[in-house]
Design a binder for these strands. Structure first.
Lengths: 170, 170
DNA sequence: CTGAAGTTTCACAAACTTGTAAAGCTTCCG
DNA sequence: CGGAAGCTTTACAAGTTTGTGAAACTTCAG
């Protein structure tokens, strides 16, 4: 235990390492792309963690936020499948691990958006009729998203295949 | 309760058509994906418009929001290249048109995110060292985003090519 | 030049988000 | 069992975001 508890009311802020800086910067990117701030920070903390798993306490400590905030973020992250709760052997604390295919998960959720877009276009076409200015715009939208959805799925499949090969062989 | 729709404060609310409903639903999708609410609604109003161009006033009227709100949203949308201001011939009002390659624009901005992710991973690797748990996670992240970025770009190129062919000949 | 139509800007209020403190649980140890 | 450590939940306050109304600005017709 290298824990040097400093109960003084003074600065309990730990020295921001380059790693933590990098983590926070990435968290910001996620936030700019719609992720909840706390979820993003926690996610990045787990991603950049120097050990295989981390505890909620460690995260709270490192991010310098309340335990409650971490708890909520973890709940969200587990629900969407970005991190994973791992059974803690002889410990009271829960441990968390970065989910291996988190990246694919993240992208897949964007794919769903593509699909929703395509559907929305269809609805619009049904309401506007194909022979109107709106209908034409919507038809192009439909084509675009149908194409992107299909291609992105193929792309993800190829990645999974590549990844599987990578793990198995060599 | 399928009660008679009674706009209690019945001012000038226009009858929500199926088209407008579809537009609003799509706007919601954009909002859920991080677009500003007003920008999303205006964008969809233009997309679903029954004529080639619309005026700011028409949009405000249709969405039942203030002129100021529309003005701000339009500014944003033009800046990011999703709609276009078209010179109004003999009219005091500005007209706006849906930008033809708005969809590609939207996707391209997501590509930039992929690139930022890759860079973030690189930074992290530099800070953590490649031979740590964090380093390994980050290396996988880097691979993933590098791959996705490259493939998505090829995908977009193919789309543009396809689209160009479509417009040019039959 | 004057007035009307239309658009933009700005201060502000309403609504929504977020994170915290503190209380309440649950789990494990002795 | 009793207690301590840690996690979760909740009410609430601080901080943002958003959209409005009104005034300022721009453009055009006569």
């Amino acid at each position: 235990m290298t824990e040097t508890r400093r109960p003084a009311d003074a600065e309990t802020r730990r020295p921001a390492t380059a790693l933590h800086d990098a983590a926070e910067r990435l968290a910001l990117v996620f936030v700019e792309n719609g992720m909840q701030r706390m979820a993003a920070r926690v996610f990045c903390a787990v991603l950049f963690a120097e050990r295989e798993t981390v505890t909620a306490g460690e995260i709270a400590d490192q991010l310098d936020v309340s335990a409650g905030a971490v708890s909520g973020a973890i709940k969200t992250l587990i629900t969407v499948g970005l991190i994973q709760r791992v059974p803690a052997p002889g410990s009271r604390r829960d441990h968390f691990r970065f989910q291996t295919d988190a990246w694919a998960t993240l992208l897949t959720s964007k794919n769903n958006v593509l699909d929703v877009m395509r559907q929305a276009a269809d609805e619009g076409i049904a309401a506007a009729g194909i022979d109107s200015p709106a209908g034409e715009r919507l038809a192009e939208m439909r084509n675009f998203y149908a194409y992107m959805l299909q291609e992105t799925e193929r792309m993800l499949d190829r990645w999974r295949e590549y990844e599987a090969r990578g793990r198995a062989g060599s």
